[in-house]
Amino acid sequence: MEDRNRRRGRYFALDELRGLVFISMVLYHGMWDLVYMFGHEIAWYEGTAGYVWQQSICWCFILLSGFCWAFGRNKYRHAGLVFGAGFLVTLVTCLFLPEDRVVFGVLTFLGTAAFLTTLLQPLLSRCRPAPGLIASIVLFVFTRNVNVGFLGFEEWRLLKLPEGLYDNFVTAFLGFPPGDFYSTDYFSLIPWLFLFLSGYFLYRCVMCSQKEEPLHFLKRGRAPALRWIGQRSLLLYLLHQPALYVLLHLWAWYFDK
């Protein structure tokens, strides 16, 4: 099986990296459930350390997804599958956990980003990789704070945006949520599309190398368990939160007896 996958060009190291980030995400979500659903106070998690942890997960996932976009065979089908999974998460949380609902979550974003990248590929392919990468990074940095009403990055707020932009559900999807918008997992097109495109252009920069096969070192896997997780990350993503919820309830029941 491994030899056949290698002949098909499977990059095992990328699967393993995705698996590693997935495990980090599961641990983070487990902590989130403990703090916000079960009422445990964990100071470091609610502070800067927890925020950096959360950002490292989403940055890696989105950047890696953009980098791996080129590997897909049926790109529109993949985009639709991921978007549909995101819609399922939204539907289930709105029906059964409205206080912890997910609207425009990471799967919805990744499906949309993959669709737009596929749609715009004829235009994007005309952009030189290095300038495209630089432009994507700059745009991500400058638009990182649009969700909270500013251009800028984190504590650096360059320009306050007009309040009229933050109007409704559609503007929330784009990156301009109104005051009454709420979601426990929110990834709008702006700024995150620019991070996805950073991964897309990073891949193209690497492939512009003069080497015959610049990504050959990524074909050798070293952690089969991580690879297994990474290759099934979408299904496992849909299952991990219900599994955590059940396990934590069993844990609470056992220790509260």
Rank of each mutant, 00 (worst) to 15 (best):
D3C: 00
D3L: 09
D3N: 10
R7A: 14
G9R: 09
Y11P: 01
Y11D: 02
Y11E: 13
A13T: 01
D15W: 02
L17W: 05
V21L: 09
F22V: 03
S24D: 06
S24Y: 09
M25L: 14
M25W: 12
V26E: 05
H29T: 12
L34D: 00
L34G: 00
L34V: 00
V35F: 02
M37K: 13
M37I: 08
G39Y: 11
H40Q: 10
I42L: 15
I42D: 04
Y45F: 15
G50R: 07
Q55P: 01
I57P: 10
C58P: 00
C58Y: 14
W59K: 03
W59F: 15
F61G: 05
I62L: 11
I62M: 09
L64V: 13
S65D: 08
S65Y: 08
S65W: 08
S65Q: 10
C68E: 04
A70T: 14
A70V: 13
N74E: 13
L81P: 01
V82S: 07
G86D: 06
G86E: 05
G86V: 02
F87M: 14
V89P: 03
T90F: 07
T90H: 11
C94H: 05
C94E: 10
C94K: 08
R101I: 08
G105C: 10
V106W: 02
L107Y: 12
F109E: 06
G111P: 07
T112I: 11
A113P: 07
A113D: 06
F115L: 15
L116P: 03
L116H: 07
T118Q: 11
L119F: 12
Q121C: 13
R128Q: 13
A130P: 00
P131F: 10
P131E: 11
G132V: 01
A135Q: 02
S136T: 03
I137M: 13
V138K: 02
F140Q: 02
T143W: 01
T143Q: 00
V148H: 02
G149T: 10
G149N: 11
F150W: 15
F153L: 12
E155T: 09
W156T: 04
L158K: 04
E163Y: 06
N168G: 07
F169T: 09
F169S: 11
V170G: 00
F173E: 09
G175L: 03
G175D: 06
P177S: 12
F187S: 02
I190R: 01
P191A: 10
P191S: 11
W192H: 12
L193H: 14
F194Y: 07
L195S: 05
F196W: 11
G199N: 08
F201G: 05
Y203E: 11
K211G: 04
K211H: 12
P214E: 10
H216F: 05
F217Y: 13
L218H: 00
R220I: 14
P224N: 07
A225C: 13
W228D: 04
I229E: 08
R232W: 06
L234V: 10
L234T: 03
L234Y: 03
L235A: 14
L235V: 13
Y237M: 08
L238C: 11
L239A: 15
L239V: 09
H240T: 04
H240P: 06
Q241L: 05
Y245F: 15
L248Q: 15
L248A: 02
L248V: 02
H249S: 08
H249I: 01
L250V: 13
W251P: 03
A252E: 12
Y254M: 09
F255Y: 12
